[in-house]
Design a protein around this nucleic acid. Structure first.
Length: 303
DNA sequence: CTGGGGATGGGGCCC
DNA sequence: CGGGCCCCATCCCCA
């Protein structure tokens, strides 16, 4: 399975946004306002769609932005400090998507009210800030100690232990005991993830999340046209479209390409055996997209 | 309609 | 941990 498919595909990639809808915005201020509004609120639309929205906005900014006329860098994406502190909050990362599996008592929301910075573990709920620092993955207290503490602090704890962890089956006499156990152990270990604030994607490492966030912030800006990219090498490839540099040459013909992937696709045209074959008619194609077109055109309609 | 080039996005891997 | 690179995928456009 292609690696990039592990996270993508929450949307219909075949559809592009209707650019004409944006034509009503003719002033850069309007565009910036739209962009800022979009960035301020948690994104509830597919990532790709949003990126395209940025791209469209950017293209329009490039044309009309006074920053370009003055020779200044284009402020493609508003930075947090530009936005009002009340409206913008930094990317929230938490290591457990939902620290409790069991329903929480009213008002006990371990995450609400705790905007965490990147890579930080969300602090425990107020009721859990007693004596020990529990921020690490390793707890200084054992499960048995937890249970004992729970019993000692709860006058009814002597009764039958009726709160059971649905992950490890340990039982606790109090809800708080179970909750503490789950937050410190089971949930933290089984559900550790880093979530993007701008979209619904989750990653198992902070590095992966940071890289993904670049696709939202687009920090690499072309000095020539102002177009923004998520990574430096993407910008490099783009700059080649300005310079005409084509460092990747075909060994079979005289063609050269600015992008290695495009050279690879081109090399397929020299190959007698095409890489992508239709399962129905065995016809082969040099590209996956061509095979898909072929399938959509009706060859595989009988299946 | 098909094939191919150009441009770009994005996750994973390696250093 | 971050940057660079690899690889794959996709879309647009044109012949």
């Amino acid at each position: 399975m292609p690696r990039s498919f592990l996270v993508k595909k929450h949307f219909n990639a075949s559809k592009k946004p209707n650019y004409s809808e944006l034509d009503t915005h003719t002033e850069s201020g309007v565009i910036y306002a739209d962009l800022c509004t979009h960035m301020r609120k948690p994104c509830d639309q597919p990532t790709h769609k949003m990126e395209e929205s940025f791209s469209v906005s950017l293209k329009r900014v490039v044309i009309i932005s006074p920053y370009l006329y003055e020779g200044y860098p284009v402020p493609v994406i508003p930075q947090p400090e530009i936005l009002s502190s009340g409206a913008y909050s930094p990317i929230t990362v938490w290591t457990t998507a939902a620290p409790f599996h069991a329903p929480l008592p009213t008002g006990l929301s371990p995450l609400s009210g705790y905007p965490a910075s990147l890579g930080r573990v969300s602090p425990p709920p107020p009721s859990d800030t007693s004596s020990k620092d529990h921020s690490g993955s390793e707890s200084p207290i054992s499960d048995e100690e937890e249970r004992l503490q729970s019993k000692l602090s709860d006058p009814h704890a002597i009764e039958a232990e009726k709160f059971q962890c649905n992950l490890c089956s340990k039982t606790y006499s109090t809800f708080s005991g179970l909750g503490k156990h789950k937050q410190l152990h089971c949930d933290a270990q089984s559900r550790k993830s880093f979530s993007c604030k701008y979209c619904d994607k989750e990653y198992v490492s902070l590095g992966a999340l940071k890289m993904h966030i670049r696709t939202h912030t687009l920090p690499c800006v072309c000095k020539i046209c102002g177009k923004a990219f998520s990574r430096p090498w993407l910008l490099q490839g783009h700059i080649r479209t300005h310079t005409g540099e084509k460092p990747f040459s075909c060994s079979h013909c005289s063609r050269a390409f600015a992008d290695r992937s495009n050279l690879r696709a081109h090399l397929q045209t020299h190959s007698d055996v095409k890489k992508y074959q239709c399962k129905n008619c065995s016809k082969t194609f040099s590209r996956m997209s061509l095979l898909h077109k072929h399938e959509e055109s009706g060859c595989c309609a009988a299946h």
